[in-house]
């Protein structure tokens, strides 16, 4: 479940979960939900996405930027995200995700908003007590 974070010009969201994997999955859902209703996205095709970055925050940045890229360049959106995050020590963090969704159909998919990009503004991926959370602001 994502909480919307206010921003004068744009928008942010916060997701929290028991595991870091789940936070990345929920962030994928939250981002997609800003663009269109994920409940309307059928799981017609699956893809494997592999990314790596030095920090958890950078990994979140490249992960969500990848989803925006796929939406904008290939017109596909996803409703199911299964992510595994591996801490690879000195070489940083690695994400392996299986995503399922379909090509955008303007007849069925009512677009809510267009996201230009993921910002680094107050981007957080951290652990708080027994929960992981992420806060992300997007440029709209």
């Amino acid at each position: 479940m994502a909480i919307e974070l206010e921003h004068t010009a744009d928008l942010g969201f916060r997701v929290s979960a028991r595991s870091l994997d789940r936070v990345f999955e929920d962030a994928g859902v939250a981002l997609t939900n800003l663009i269109l209703d994920t409940h309307l996205i059928m799981r017609k095709e699956s893809r494997k996405i592999t990314l790596s970055s030095m920090t958890r925050e950078d990994l979140m940045f490249v992960w969500l930027s990848e989803l925006i890229y796929l939406f904008d360049a290939e017109h596909v959106a996803f409703s199911e995200f299964v992510a595994t995050i591996v801490n690879a020590g000195r070489v940083g963090f690695r994400l392996e995700a299986f995503v399922s969704g379909e090509r955008i159909d303007p007849q069925r998919h009512q677009i809510r908003s267009y996201i230009k990009g993921i910002t680094l503004h107050q981007l957080q991926v951290a652990q708080d007590a027994d929960e992981w959370y992420a806060e992300v602001y997007v440029d709209m």
């Binding site: 950078d58 940045f61 490249v62 930027s65 925006i68 904008d72 230009k116 990009g117």
Partner: peptide, 17 residues
């Protein structure tokens, strides 16, 4: 449009580190 947005995304990633 998306072309400019991606240029910004690419260079934020490049320059930060």
């Amino acid at each position: 449009r998306g072309l400019g947005h991606q240029v910004c995304t690419d260079f934020l990633s490049t320059m930060g580190p």
